[in-house]
């Protein structure tokens, strides 16, 4: 079990889904998920949420009627993203 393999893989600059990581590292989705959780906790990667980008930040957002906002329940449908924290 080498978690630095996951980080090394990302150095090529390509974005990968959890499933792709699992198949490239010959492991399961669940294993990738726990590694992500761990790496997030030690601060090696950072989660970026779709909510953070855009919605609620523009002044015109009164009652969620902003032109840039997605339907409330759709925000979860944008998926989660993690980026590697550069040292």
């Amino acid at each position: 079990m080498h978690m630095d393999e996951l980080l090394r893989l990302l150095k090529d600059g390509n974005t990968r889904t959890i499933e792709q990581l699992a198949s490239e590292l010959h492991t399961t989705d669940a294993d990738i998920r726990r590694q992500l959780e761990f790496l997030e906790h030690i601060g090696a990667i950072r989660k970026i949420s779709a909510q953070e980008s855009g919605c609620g930040h523009c002044g015109s957002c009164s009652g969620g009627a902003c032109k840039g906002c997605m339907p409330k329940n759709a925000k979860q449908n944008m998926g989660d993203m993690w980026e590697v924290v550069s040292v």
Partner: peptide
């Protein structure tokens, strides 16, 4: 500079 790739969790289709 060196760019690191990202990881995405695609939500299931609803």
């Amino acid at each position: 500079e060196d760019k690191c790739g990202m990881i995405m969790e695609l939500p299931p289709y609803h």
